[in-house]
Design a protein around this nucleic acid. Structure first.
Length: 574
RNA sequence: GCGCCCGUAGCUCAGCUGGAUAGAGCGCCGGACUUCGAAUCCGUAGGUCGAGAGUUCGAAUCUCUCCGGGCGUACCA
């Protein structure tokens, strides 16, 4: 699989298809408006934002308008009559518009000519790996922060879901013209870190037969001992003789690096890369926390009570005020997080997207409040929750809760089901909804699950292309191929499906939900397979072969582009 | 208690800013390989969209109430 190059997204060449696509949407709207303006009783009527929609079934044409229904009340006429009047005044265009129908209760349905489909198919092939990109983002600088698990242990399955979603979103946003930077925030400061280090310290001693009791509320998992053992293996126990404060300070770095290494390795295995690993410690060492505190204080959003320092977030719709500095003088995670997000704004991002775990649900309001108090546009901060994952195994739910201590590590998980399957299953569901992941199902039905269905379509096409290559069929130059030979129902259906791709991407980008793309790719595959069964691509008929090869090439293109946005491989053989 | 998410086919879920006969996948049942890959295809069955009311020409979609599930609700991170 050849990855798509995302770098030059701002310079998408203008071509056939771009023009045609915009033309068709705008053009139909323009036609409608022309028709409308020629009708006396439509003068001064307020129209809806969008006049053209895409019908759910192609029984209702390629495009449709419900304008007559929308204005019926205003002009006090029946929708049917209005639709009739509009259509009667519509300029005709036999080249691209095949048919305009009026259907009860007043829809106007447009059916495009095959000429249009063939023309557009050529456009897809011309665009190649760039097909589906758009300019929506306008080069806007956006930061996407995701996973950002505490460095207190291995990544778990919720992290894996966030990883899949974040990576897909980064690809999607890039492809529609944003400049995306991926960031991982490392909470390497604060009390949890202290606890972690103390826990490893205890284990480190235990391994040498020295009884040191672990700290209260400390960490227990096997990985604690694993880290301790690795430190011990590397240093032959030389840290035992240090004073506890010395040792803790030394351990702090060692432990952190070991765990981060583990996390990075795991993410890498999931085919993930980050542009920036941001350390909380960096903020702590600078005066960022004090600075943010004094700025909030200057704004009058801070007060003291019971010895603690509070942020008046209730002024921004929060249900209660929040502590910034505890009564024993520790800055809270919240304060540090405010400083972090301020830092993001200061780095010049115009759009800041965080994917948070379900346990951070309650933090959204207060964080937005803090940014508003600091004078930033809370609308530029997008805080999304990646909902929890319920793992089902043997029909039982295994809750992914740290508190219950039942964690399935991300590493073990992707080892179990594979990267492609894991990613696809995570992206099949809306990010904001809880997800049931049946491991047995994913494995047992692995041969019939949707990932393979899509990948198989791709591999099958590659196989056809190989076959065509060997038999030296369809070697005509693209511009000499007559697309008009693609005239069966299956072929036209496929072309129409391929033409929806840019809209799908745009919708995913707008909603920050990759889910629509997984569904779409399944549809492409399920349009392709029947086509394959009913029609031979490589035949004695050279012209037809050439045309079908082009169609099949376009299907392959869309599958590959789409899968690569999801971070899923498009194998040439399976 | 309050806040957020969710109740759609046996199961897991789509259904975009309200629209035309509510859709997929899986599972079940019955068929299709001398032809570019059967990890595929073809066909059948399956629904009072949790309940009720409201807004509208028109509601799975918007509003309210109720029922039922999940999560959150710290001077923790």
């Amino acid at each position: 699989m050849r990855p798509i190059e995302y770098q030059n997204h701002t310079r998408i060449k203008e071509n056939h298809y771009d023009r045609a696509k915009e033309f068709m949407r705008d053009y139909l709207t323009k036609l409608l408006l022309q028709g409308i303006h020629r009708i006396d009783y439509m003068k001064g009527v307020s129209l809806p934002h969008s006049l053209i929609e895409r019908p759910k079934t192609d029984m209702h044409g390629d495009y449709a308008s419900s304008i007559a229904l929308a204005v019926a009340r205003q002009v006090k006429r029946s929708p049917q009559n209005i639709a009739r009047d509009i259509v009667a005044h519509l300029p005709s265009d036999p080249k691209w518009i095949d048919q305009v129908d009026i259907v009860a209760p007043g829809f106007i349905n447009f059916r495009l000519t095959k000429q249009w489909l063939w023309h557009a198919l050529r456009g897809i092939l011309e665009e190649g790996s760039v097909y589906g990109r758009a300019h929506l983002g306008g080069g806007k600088k956006v930061q996407l922060e995701f996973v950002s698990a505490n460095p207190t242990g291995p990544l778990n399955v919720v992290s894996a879901r966030a990883a899949a979603v974040g990576d897909a979103l980064a690809h999607i946003l890039t492809s529609v013209g944003y400049r995306v930077e991926r960031e991982y925030y490392v909470n390497d400061a604060g009390r949890q870190m202290d606890l972690l280090v103390a826990s490893v310290d205890a284990a480190y001693h235990r391994l040498q037969g020295i009884d040191v009791s672990p700290p209260e509320g400390g960490y227990h998992g096997d990985y604690i001992e694993g880290v301790a053992r690795r430190i011990l293996d590397e240093d032959n126990g030389k840290y035992v003789n240090m004073t506890p404060p010395e040792r803790q300070a030394t351990f702090r770095d060692l432990v952190l690096e070991k765990i981060l290494d583990n996390q990075r390795e795991c993410l890498k295995r999931f085919r993930l890369r980050y542009d920036v690993w941001f350390r909380e410690q960096e903020l702590r060492e600078s005066d960022a926390l004090d600075d943010v505190l004094s700025r909030l204080r200057d704004g009058g959003y801070v007060y003291e009570n019971d010895g603690a320092t509070w942020f008046r977030s209730t002024g921004f719709g929060d249900e209660k005020d929040r502590v910034l500095v505890t009564s024993d003088g520790h800055p809270t995670y919240f304060l540090s997080d405010i400083a972090y997000h301020r830092n993001k704004f200061e780095r010049g991002f115009e759009w800041i997207i965080d994917l948070w775990g379900p346990d951070h649900h309650g933090h959204i309001t207060r964080m937005k409040a803090a940014m508003e108090a600091l004078g930033y546009d809370p609308g530029a901060l997008e805080l999304r929750i990646v909902q929890q994952v319920n793992l089902l195994q043997a029909g039982e739910k295994a809750k992914m809760s740290k508190r219950e201590g039942r964690l399935v590590s991300m590493e073990a998980f992707i080892e179990e089901v594979g990267v492609d399957v894991a990613r696809f299953f995570f992206l099949m569901r809306k990010t904001s909804a809880h997800l049931d992941f049946d491991i047995d199902l994913a494995k047992r039905q692995s041969e019939e699950n949707p990932v393979y269905y899509i990948q198989y379509a791709h591999a099958r096409i590659c196989s056809i292309l190989r076959h065509a290559d060997e038999s030296e069929a369809g070697t005509a130059r693209a511009e000499d191929v007559s697309m008009t030979l693609l005239d069966t129902e299956e072929e036209l259906t496929l072309v129409k499906r391929l033409l929806m791709y840019p809209e799908v991407i745009e919708r995913c980008a707008a909603s920050l939900e990759p889910q629509g793309l997984t569904a779409y790719l399944q549809e492409v595959a399920s349009d392709f397979h029947p086509f394959y069964h009913r029609h031979r691509v490589v035949t004695e008929n050279g012209d037809l072969t050439a045309a079908r090869l082009m169609l099949v090439e376009a299907v392959k293109l869309v599958l590959r582009n789409g899968l690569s946005l999801l971070g899923i491989s498009a194998p040439e053989k399976m």
